[in-house]
Amino acid sequence: SPVALPPFFMRGSIIQLADGELKRVEDLKTEDFIQSAEISSELKIDSSTVERIDNGQSPNAVVIQFSVGELKAQVCVEVLVEYPFFVFGQGWSSCCPDRTTQLFELSCAKLCVGDVCVSLTLRGMR
């Protein structure tokens, strides 16, 4: 398999917001990301819309094409099917929610074309 999923997606992982507040990964809300990015001097939240989901190089991988930000830049990422993205107003979502829940005990919705995910860019970047 390509890469192991990072440990912070495990249910119960402690996440520090930009204002110092600690939350569990499963308790994060859309506002937590928005407010943290507002405080950040370097990072900016972008809306990344899922345009396509295709099979990846290995059976447990997918290639997700996003349309990023106001400029609608097309960006492809290859991830494991269980990799969770945070969808605005919905929360954690992955291409295979059952597997995400099985591996990380993290409740997930199904990531679909048209979903708008939270992503980051650098401030001041064009």
């Binding site: 990072p6 440990p7 912070f8 997606f9 992982s13 402690i14 996440i15 520090q16 917001l17 930009a18 600690l22 990964v25 994060l28 937590d32 990301f33 943290s36 950040s40 990072l43 972008d46 990344s48 996003f66 990023v68 400029l71 830049a73 097309q74 960006v75 990422v77 993205f85 945070f86 995910c117 939270v118 992503s119 980051l120 860019t121 650098l122 970047m125 064009r126």
Partner: peptide, 19 residues
């Protein structure tokens, strides 16, 4: 207990080509 920064959790998506 490890504490992870919020920005680890969301992908950094930026166009690879600049204009």
């Amino acid at each position: 207990v490890p504490v992870f920064p919020w920005h680890s959790l969301v992908p950094f998506l930026a166009p690879t080509q600049s204009d």
